[in-house]
Amino acid sequence: MPVAQEGARPRRRPSSAYGTGAPAQPDRLLRGAGTASQFALGGLLALAPLIGAAGLGGSPAFLVAGLLLGLPHGAVDHLVPAWLSARVRPMPARVALLVVYTAVAGAGLVAFQAAPDVALVGFLVVSVVHFGTADVAFHAERDRRPTRVTVAATLAYGGPPVVVPLALWRDQVDPVLAAVSPRVPGLIAVEVRALALATVLYAVVLTVSRDLRAGRTRDAAEPVLLVALFGTVPPALAIGAYFALWHSCRHVARLLRHDPRNTADLATGRVGPPLRRFARQAAVPTVLAVVALIALVTWPGHRADPLPATFAVLAALTLPHAALVAWTDRRGSGPPGRAGGGLLPHRGTRRRS
């Protein structure tokens, strides 16, 4: 047997947490939000036969309601950079960020007016990327591990809410697309939809296999759940429920962790005060967005249909929101100096001891 040399340094065991020798425990808040979203959409999937038999779920009102209920999840975007920064950002910097954010959203709204075909197709692509990377980042932050975004995982999580309805529910999806841009349903050919669906299903197989090998059984079930949901539940109801009860719910949970003022409450398991704080922070931006939507729908002489107007407003807000969330995911998670959380290191960088 080999004998260790005197004074030799023992080999360090690989760490599964940042700088620790033991696996990091999943974040309780994010684990709870993930479980709640799984049960919500799983319950809806279980009711799919009854929904189909009763002919429910096809009304665009479900879609509009879900989109509006999920609107507050992006209402505090202008505060996030300060939460994740180790230094205090002056008020002019915050105002400048809000102005740029509003300008980008306004440009998106103008794009829907000037070139609705390109804007709508671009919005669908951005939605796939945004939904997919959001779930990947959510899992990583929940488990306190680095975020590693892959094409397969992005498509596996972001593809079902967009691609599956486009491919399997043309009779219900195309009228909604045509209300926003009459030419888009014809531009997205049947062959394109079939190829996109096959690509997403292949990505789901790869992602599920990877999660099973890593021992993440519940994560492996999520892409399967999403494909089943959007394949069996009418898209207006499925998309509305997904946006409000899955995507927005998980993002709000992440935001609660990002706000440094919530650290003490969350450490003791109190979620009520952080939720009330978030509600106060999101109230004014949400009201302003709803007022802008109402103005588009009711403005004398320039009234717009509620569905395409809602779609255009939310699509315009998605562009700066998705960009800021991508920056947040790259930057890390949790306020600076949070015990057990902290800013996650960038991929390929070392954490200083």
Rank of each mutant, 00 (worst) to 15 (best):
Gly7Val: 02
Ala8Tyr: 03
Pro10Phe: 06
Arg13Val: 15
Pro14Cys: 06
Pro23Leu: 07
Asp27Phe: 03
Arg31Tyr: 12
Ala33Lys: 03
Gly34Asn: 04
Ala36Lys: 09
Leu41Val: 14
Gly43Ser: 00
Leu44Gln: 06
Leu45Ala: 09
Leu45Cys: 05
Pro49Asp: 07
Pro49Phe: 14
Ile51Met: 00
Leu56Thr: 07
Pro60Ser: 01
Val64Ile: 15
Gly66Thr: 09
Leu68Glu: 07
Leu69Thr: 06
Gly70His: 00
Leu71Phe: 08
Pro72Arg: 01
Val76Tyr: 01
Leu79Trp: 05
Val88Ile: 12
Ala96Glu: 11
Val99Ala: 15
Val99Met: 08
Ala105Ile: 09
Leu109Ser: 08
Ala115Val: 12
Ala115Ser: 08
Asp117Trp: 04
Phe123Leu: 13
Phe123Ser: 01
Ser127Gln: 13
Val136Tyr: 04
Ala137Ser: 15
Ala140Gln: 08
Ala140Ser: 13
Glu141Cys: 04
Arg142Gly: 03
Arg144Gly: 00
Arg145Tyr: 06
Arg145Lys: 07
Pro146Val: 02
Arg148Thr: 14
Thr150Leu: 12
Ala156Asp: 14
Tyr157Ser: 10
Pro160Asn: 05
Val162Ala: 06
Val163Gly: 08
Val164His: 06
Leu177Phe: 01
Pro182Val: 09
Leu195Ser: 08
Leu197Arg: 07
Val205Gln: 15
Arg210Gln: 15
Thr217Ser: 08
Ala221His: 06
Ala221Met: 14
Glu222Tyr: 14
Leu225Cys: 12
Val227Gln: 10
Ala228Asp: 05
Gly231Asp: 05
Thr232Phe: 06
Ala236Ser: 13
Ile239Thr: 05
Tyr242Glu: 09
Leu245His: 15
Trp246Arg: 14
His247Asn: 03
Ser248Tyr: 03
His251Trp: 02
His251Asn: 02
Arg257Ile: 02
His258Ala: 13
Thr263Glu: 15
Leu266Arg: 03
Leu266Tyr: 10
Ala267Tyr: 05
Arg276Asn: 08
Ala279Pro: 13
Ala279Met: 12
Thr286Leu: 10
Thr286Phe: 09
Thr286Arg: 02
Val287Trp: 04
Ala289Tyr: 07
Val291Thr: 12
Val291Gly: 07
Ile294Trp: 13
Pro300Trp: 01
Gly301Trp: 14
Pro306Glu: 06
Ala312Gly: 06
Ala312Arg: 10
Val313Arg: 05
Ala315Cys: 12
Thr318Val: 11
Pro320Leu: 01
Pro320Asn: 03
His321Lys: 05
Ala323Val: 09
Leu324Val: 11
Arg330Gly: 11
Ala339Pro: 07
Ala339Met: 09
Ala339Lys: 13
Leu343Glu: 05
Leu343Gln: 10
Leu344Tyr: 11
Leu344Glu: 07
Pro345Asn: 06
Arg351His: 12
Arg352Asn: 11
Ser353Trp: 04
Ser353His: 10
